[in-house]
Write a protein that binds this DNA or RNA. Structure first.
Lengths: 257, 257
DNA sequence: CACAATTCATCACATATGTGATGGATCAAT
DNA sequence: ATTGATCCATCACATATGTGATGAATTGTG
């Protein structure tokens, strides 16, 4: 997509990896997990040690983040919402439904996964935090697009058609406007193969605070299985939305008390 | 010597700046705060937006971190809480003294709380991790300032006086230089109302490894109560420092064995 | 204790990024 | 609306960083 600064990206990817593994890692492990050359990993890790963000255990040759990184993002939870609880709530949806569950936000013309919890049922769906699918081509995206004007949606659809990486998305995007309208009317989105063939997902928009960016939650896997579980999934997602709403209300009370 | 990767460093500095300001920032504000060229800031911010770590408000031309950054470091405190030694050691100080105990590091002209353990005794003090008080206006800050040159301290004091959010801190900052000297001489800092009225705290500098960032530990509550417990608190803090020193030594022994 | 297999730090050239200059976009004031 | 002042995105060359190859350090094995 857009040009991004490689070492900046890798720095963040490295800390995301640690947040995934939550244990000391060797250069080799980082190298393999992030798919970058070993020499680059060595240099990056060394730099982060000298900046005080990573600690090196010379004996075991492992690296581990220092407490310092906790300052980067801890505050935002209190500010925005209780992000620490969201993963647990998503896991609950994944557990109840058996399907992969994600939290997504808009990024440009894409829907980007913030948190992903894999379900028990097998899929080939790519669900990892940071992944991007066009807003126009996935159920989480349609939810987010209900917040936009018709003109804005059209514009996004047009950009998607001209920029999409594959023919499948280009084709899906052509039906996006009606999908967004449908989502608007019935309160949830249901994709059936538009994102990836044979995969489907149901999504809803999550309540968001004024000024904060919108997020949607989705749940899905093989489309036929999802169709059979429709009511179960919708129920779980609505419960999630309800819990999030409660968290927001708590935050607002705290804010003004 | 300290070869560090520039864009990696800047990325982290940028998020630390947000953790300091905790509000949307413009390119210009970031440029000035971090002392980097405006064109570089633009490119970095754009890259971080495309990576999903920053959100741009096109209307106001401001940037703000997304929830995604909270995923980078939120887990590590929970981890330390369970397995790490520092939180346990701090809890011990809080238990023995009955007062709130914190671990702090420098962030800009502020002392920021890495870990906070509440004491049993009641206070109105705000002690939560991520919170900020001016270096010049709190005992943890005075400890950290003993590491700086007189010129650097004066500069920080001047900035604090001009930027402080309230009159109380502006007033406190005027006595910061002598407090830092006092701290230097007697080996501990003792604030008596400078941070918040009627509250006081005793702090000491923790031993740090070469290259690692400096941290100080503080313990306090209502100032008259703290004055009464001065020896108890100092004893507990010194024991903490001793334990930390031992941890470090262990690491170094491992290093050279 | 020697040998083989891993793992990692370092170097030097290929590539990516930083940045001064520029002008377009937006804002504030009349 | 018009002007002048800010603010910021972009470009092209200067600088910083990435990376394959290498061998040193460490670990595993008998």
């Amino acid at each position: 997509m857009n040009a991004s600064i490689k070492s900046s990206q890798r720095t963040l990817e490295l800390f995301e990896l640690f947040s995934l593994e939550q244990r000391p890692l060797t250069i080799k492990e980082i190298t393999e997990a992030l798919g970058m050359p070993q020499s680059s990993t060595s240099v990056l890790a060394k730099s982060l040690v000298s900046l005080g963000y990573l600690e090196k255990n010379e004996m075991r040759r492992t690296y581990y983040p220092t407490l310092r990184i906790s300052l980067l993002g801890t505050w935002i939870r209190r500010q925005h919402q209780r992000a620490g609880q969201l993963p647990a709530l998503l896991s609950e949806v994944a557990r109840v439904t058996g399907e992969s569950t994600i939290l997504a936000m808009r990024n440009g013309i894409y829907s980007q996964y913030l948190i992903a919890q894999k379900g028990n049922s097998p899929t080939r769906a790519q669900v990892e935090s940071g992944m991007l699918y066009p807003l126009a081509c996935c159920s989480t995206g349609w939810c987010l697009l209900t917040l936009e004007s018709k003109e804005a949606v059209s514009k996004i659809v047009r950009r998607t058609i001209s920029e999409a990486k594959n023919e499948h998305w280009r084709k899906s995007a052509k039906h996006a406007v009606e999908q967004v309208e449908l989502t608007q009317n019935r309160g949830y989105a249901f994709s059936k193969g538009e994102t990836m063939e044979r995969l489907g997902a149901i999504s809803i928009l999550l309540p968001s605070m004024p000024g904060a960016y919108a997020m949607s939650a989705g749940c899905g896997g093989w489309v036929d299985r999802v169709e059979g579980k429709k009511d179960l999934i919708l129920g779980a997602l609505n419960e999630l939305a309800h819990s999030v709403r409660q968290l927001k209300d708590q935050d607002e009370q705290i804010l003004f008390s």
